[in-house]
Design a binder for these strands. Structure first.
Lengths: 340, 340
DNA sequence: TTGTACGCGTTATCAG
DNA sequence: CTGATAACGCGTACAA
């Protein structure tokens, strides 16, 4: 089981001091090429492995960053993570991933845990809108970079990388209008979350800009689940004056709606168009591929990571950056009434 | 920005020694209830936060465990992670997640990184079968618990939690036979990976046990992608004597096959049955729901975590545990020829 | 029950 | 260019 070899061991072997070894190992200029090579060689020989913890304790830099998000098992989020990894791992960082399951209390605990673990930064997608920002101010007080992605909160000192949800929704709605739809319904989730509020606004303003009426009964709340989508569609179609299109703020909602519509023999896209949001993979390979708004999750992750790196590079100067990515509408069969 | 408060600060405030504070904070029995309460109170008052790094360095326990897997953005794996989290986070552990993207070199690097970061254990799902086990023996030499899940490797000292892939495949094939299918093809991925080998064996033995012939040309390799599934199905159906059913080792493969079959107007399930493997969510909500073998990912994650905890609890005694979970066949429309 | 003293492995600041 | 020495913050024998 042989005790781990430390820089002290290799110092003894070379009859020099640990300080010199440390310098050799860390590309410190104040060392001769000869001894450096000597150190490196015997380090190899003794199978030396640097103890990250000790270095972290001393330098105050753990090389860990925390990523907090609602769920990991959703393509959007897991792809964001991938983006973050692609930027940060090559720089020697480790990613600690924590799921909140949309639980605010868990979010606060998690932030505390990560701070205690001395992470170098926190990238977070909010679990839900909350008045409580105490845990975030604590992060900032400790001078730990805090970057929101997708679901943000406006806090002095915190950066953010988000999608232009308003624009995405506007484009989707505009597209439906161009397909000839005039009675467009909207399925949203939790309007207290900024992203859903913005999607609603985009929907609403697209209608207004086209001089279409905004019927309150055409906007329904639902959870992001298929059953809820089915149920919501049922309600909409039971209206006296039912819609002829749905712009859903989630893909699963759109899928549920389509399932219900098919069950009552509504023809899509001929008589009814549907657009979802998130561009989850399944939207492509359904029998009836579903139009959806892509959120560039990979880019979002990479961008958030880069913002973090910037903050690290200039920790003295306080930077606060808000970046907004442009969404892309993926037009598929579910909303292709006109063949141009 | 106020420097972080340490146990020294709170010791000074109470005019006692840091050692006492430490004891109070760690439920050490050798302390009076009075001073303990006093310490806890002023710790609260001074907003003390324990420095995990320092504790880790001293105790040799980082409270971090590494989870290494091929991809995070696949329902199976992300759900395993969720299972691991549910067991380990309440115990105060942090989860460091690393993706290998099926790259063996990256896997080896990752293992090294995690060891240098002094993780308390490593849970891993192999990227691909490899002859090189050096990185694993290093883990074991350092007496760090190593637990394989799903994709394992037999190494002395390492534990594993896997699915009974053989049984899953056997059941799926048996089910197809019971539906009246006699010419059953199999789509596999990388036969060098144990899981796929076992699935093949299960398929094969189910045929043999039912006195059906095993045609070599009925087994095709593919990557786990839709296009590959389509392509493979095309090849199979172009045979002189084409199959009347497919048992695919992946769900995406099954989906691709179904897409091709539909495109050439083969009726499913009347004239052709398909079963996949993994029970990915999309299999349920396709227009034609796809039968699939469920792998109990949540349970697998929880079990792997529990095995890890056992190892930690008795680090002196070497435990090596191999657990095998039983798969469940989810029968859906794609293979329901007979209505019983 | 509490204090003393030291070490975990590394890095940084001095001198020399 | 290199050596000695002091931290980083905490835990724990040992002694009192």
């Amino acid at each position: 089981m042989s005790k781990k070899t430390t820089i002290y061991d290799i110092a003894k072997a070379l009859d020099i001091t640990a300080a010199t070894v440390s310098r050799a190992l860390n590309n410190n200029p104040r060392i001769s090429a000869d001894t450096k090579k000597l150190v490196l060689d015997t380090a190899e020989k003794l199978n030396y492995k640097r103890n990250g913890l000790a270095a972290a304790l001393k330098s105050g830099k753990s090389n860990n960053v925390g990523v907090i998000l609602p769920f990991i098992n959703r393509n959007f989020f897991s792809t964001v993570i991938r983006g973050i990894e692609e930027e940060l791992i090559p720089k020697g960082y480790h990613i600690i991933i924590c799921q909140t399951h949309e639980d605010e209390k868990k979010e606060m605990e998690t932030v505390q845990n990560l701070l205690n673990a001395q992470v170098d930064g926190i990238l977070i997608s909010l679990s839900r809108q909350t008045d409580n920002i105490e845990h975030f101010t604590q992060v900032l007080k400790k001078n730990v970079p805090l970057i929101f992605f997708d679901r943000k909160m406006d806090i002095r000192g915190a950066s953010s990388v988000t999608l232009d949800d308003y624009q995405g929704a506007y484009n989707a709605t505009q597209h439906l209008i161009e397909q000839g739809c005039t009675k467009i319904a909207h399925m949203t989730v939790d309007p207290s979350l900024l992203i859903y509020k913005n999607r609603y606004e985009g929907y609403r303003n697209a209608l207004l800009d086209n001089e279409l009426e905004v019927y309150p009964e055409f906007t329904v709340n639902l959870k992001s689940e298929i059953e809820a989508g089915r149920e919501a569609a049922r309600k909409l179609m039971d209206l006296e004056n039912p819609p002829d299109a749905i712009f859903s703020a989630t893909d699963l909602g759109a899928l549920g709606a389509i399932q219900h519509l098919k069950s009552i023999n509504v023809k899509i896209p001929e008589d009814f168009c549907v657009v979802g949001f998130s561009n989850e993979p399944f939207t492509q390979f359904m029998e009836l591929p579903i139009s959806s708004v892509d959120q560039s999750p990979l880019l979002m992750g990479k961008t958030a990571a880069k913002v973090f790196l910037e903050q690290m590079d200039s920790k003295d100067v306080k930077i606060q950056k808000s970046m907004v990515l442009t969404p892309t509408l993926m037009i598929r069969q579910s909303s292709t009434k006109l063949k141009s």
